[in-house]
């Protein structure tokens, strides 16, 4: 894709906290990374996981626990959360890839439910209350992530923002490199025609599992970032609602497009904050968007635009 688009996006990302409320931007980045990680699986490998909240949420708990109760620095906390999500992804992935298509979705959903039960009952998760008051801590023991600058009279938590933005860029870059590598080409081959990929001698199971672990790890990293931003890890993060939301973000933005999940996450997160006054009607609206999207708009925003421009985005 065009280099200027990337540079523009990075500049927008760097300047955003001066224009938009930084916490909103950080929430957006967390969910965008989550959706991108999910898209690696659905969009590029053709696997619909309905349990991705398990990785997002469990990493959020682990990071919260490491930072709050074990006193680790934020980067180690995030590393711990991400590694845990990768390990969990390996376990869930090895079981789920034993079934195809629709069963794969049901297996991931059911396995994620086990994680939900554990999060509800485990001693360190705080049950219904979740893990509250997670400190942001000092990055590498030096830079205070909780520090607030005053710019033009507005308090801005820029340290945390740029840390989150850097992590997002790292995650996005990993996904982008994965998609555009020979490995990514094999994933796309599996998505298009699995029996054919098998007949060409590819160990399809191994490719699927690797993609699953990468996706789970990055979904975990997104959850870990989220626990520092909101200083909270809660049951919502591991619930099937969150799994459904990330499916919607990806679908709305455009399954199998590089920029789609960003647009989808932006749309859904904006919608949620704009419509926070309608309370639980938001579930109805999200459901409605799901239905409309599936019936009329299967390529998503970016997918439709790409068809219009006749190039891949």
């Amino acid at each position: 894709m065009n280099k200027t688009i990337w540079i523009m996006l990075i500049i927008i990302g760097l300047l955003a906290p001066f224009v938009v409320y930084p916490v909103f931007m950080m929430k957006l980045l967390c969910f965008a990374l989550f959706a991108c990680a999910f898209n690696l699986l659905l969009g590029y490998t053709g696997l619909l996981s309905f349990g991705h909240a398990a990785f997002f949420g469990s990493a959020s708990y682990i990071t919260g626990h490491l930072v709050k109760n074990s006193g680790l620095t934020p980067e180690l906390g995030i590393l711990g959360g991400t590694l845990f999500a990768a390990l969990l992804g390996y376990l869930v992935g090895s079981l789920a890839i034993r079934r195809q298509g629709i069963y794969f979705a049901m297996v991931t959903l059911a396995l994620a439910q086990i994680v939900y039960f554990v999060a509800l009952k485990a001693p360190f998760t705080g049950g219904e209350d979740g893990l509250q008051g997670i400190p942001r801590g000092k990055l590498f023991g030096l830079i205070d992530l909780g520090h607030v600058y005053t710019v033009g009279g507005n308090p801005l938590g820029l340290n945390l923002y740029y840390f989150v933005f850097a992590l997002f860029c790292l995650g996005f870059w990993i996904i982008f490199r994965t998609i555009n590598s020979p490995f990514g080409q094999v994933l796309k081959a599996i998505r298009e025609n699995e029996p054919r990929a098998v007949s060409l001698g590819y160990k399809v199971e191994r490719f699927k599992l690797t993609a699953f672990v990468i996706s789970a790890a990055l979904a975990g990293m997104a959850g870990a970032m989220k626990s520092l931003v909101f200083q909270l890890a809660s049951l919502t993060d591991v619930s099937w609602h969150t799994s459904g939301e990330v499916v919607l973000m990806t679908l709305l933005g455009g399954v199998g497009t590089v920029l789609g999940p960003l647009v989808g996450a932006f749309t859904v997160v904006t919608l949620q904050s704009e419509l926070s006054s309608v309370g639980s009607w938001i579930t109805v609206i999200i459901g409605g968007i799901f239905v409309i999207c599936v019936l009329l708009f299967r390529h998503g925003f970016v997918g439709e635009l790409a068809r219009l421009l006749k190039r891949s985005l």
Binding site: G244, T283, I286
Partner: peptide, 22 residues
């Protein structure tokens, strides 16, 4: 793809459940 049926009915489930929750 059959997965779209799953996604559509998921959306319907959210709508029905959301309305009753209200």
């Amino acid at each position: 793809d059959h997965l779209y049926g799953l996604l559509l009915t998921f959306g319907l489930a959210l709508i029905i459940q959301g309305v009753f929750t209200n």
